[in-house]
Design a protein around this nucleic acid. Structure first.
Lengths: 201, 201
DNA sequence: AAAGTTTGCTAACGAACGTTAGGAACCAGT
DNA sequence: ACTGGTTCCTAACGTTCGTTAGCAAACTTT
């Protein structure tokens, strides 16, 4: 049997292992016995540290949600900056949160629907507010002339799509740093793929 | 073969209902008894028409995969067209397949990992080939000067992100037609959000 | 040394799971 | 009338699920 962990409490270890499993196999398809095996203990033992399986999911989802919200607030702290700058900072913060814990982010993005009420409604409301903030930044950017799009709502969807997809391909050992990823993502979304004044496509 | 009653064989009805349930609740979280209830029959009765739960998932995933592949081949049929045109056509085809059956597409995109071997490996290989084809079109577009990007692989990821996200927001009763969506998506991805020669962001 | 906390075990609970067996209606074509 | 296919039922199978109870070491604090 191992000694108790040096820096990570047993509960934190359980959270971490559960996050990895929920990400790889999905929340519903992950059994408590699987989680226990990954921890090297028996299933019943887990309940010395947590109340239920859903508590694990709840903690993961809302912790990541908090990080996203804090980053959004920071990105908009400088009220005098133009909207497009707010947007770029918000994207960079978002990418940094994603990369900081890819497993937890992936669970946050894909497994939240297995939350039960009332946590589910609370979560959805947070999500809506977050998206609305991005839509608002884009709309303000269009209004002050820095951005153009026929449909800010549509542009927001595309933006979130790219952000949400990130955990699907990001590898911590890749050659791009978080800042590079944020920069490249921002650049491609803002300026597109086509060569200005190039041939029509 | 299809001597059957209304317009949809019972097996097709089961497929359709399963698709909707897998999409809304996830494959692992959907029980055969739930599926039966949605069909108005008992759980055991389903097995007069199918061999296993996974057969349902398998049929959904591979049918959609076939549609994507066929669309890709058609988009590249005109070998003389420039790469950027191939790309635009492939995007439009992709969007049309997605929209043609949003439920099935969502299952295809999110539930395939619950397939077991050897179907899983076969599926992943199809997926890789499809993505490689898009990466190739982008790279050729960059080579012939129609597109620009510091990283074709990165651009491919962003493109797929936007395409994959579509079933998450598309509503059949929305105001945009499939062609409009494809056009708008293509335009935004190719030309970006920023105003040309506008202020730096 | 005593007390409390943390951590883990075994054993089991009721419920839900995917699936099967065997039989019975109904319908079509012969 | 017979046959074969389609459809659905009831009843149950063995398994796995999340979770609990009761107990026992080990470590920490007093």
């Amino acid at each position: 049997m191992e000694t108790t962990s040096p820096t990570l409490s047993r509960k934190a270890q359980i959270d971490q292992t559960a996050t990895a499993l929920f990400r790889r196999r999905g929340y519903a398809a992950t059994s408590m016995r699987e989680l226990a095996a990954a921890l090297g203990i028996e299933a019943g033992s887990i309940y010395s540290h947590i109340k239920s399986k859903e508590e694990l999911l709840h903690r993961i989802c809302f912790r990541v949600a908090d990080e996203f919200m804090a980053g959004l607030r920071a990105a908009n702290a400088d009220a005098d900056a133009p909207a497009a700058t707010h947007l770029r900072r918000a994207i960079e913060s978002h990418v940094r949160v994603l990369i900081n814990d890819v497993d937890a982010s992936a669970v946050f993005l894909h497994e939240w629907r297995h939350l039960s009420e009332p946590a589910l409604s609370e979560f959805v409301q947070l999500q809506r507010g977050y998206e609305a903030a991005f839509r608002d930044m884009i709309a303000r950017g269009v209004a002050d002339g820095a951005l153009r799009t026929p449909d800010p709502a549509f542009a927001t969807l595309t933006l979130f799509a790219s952000l949400t997809w990130l955990p699907n391909w990001y590898r911590p050992d890749g050659k791009l740093s978080p800042d590079q990823i944020a920069e490249r993502l921002t650049s491609q979304l803002l300026y597109g793929l086509a060569v200005p004044d190039g041939p029509a496509i």
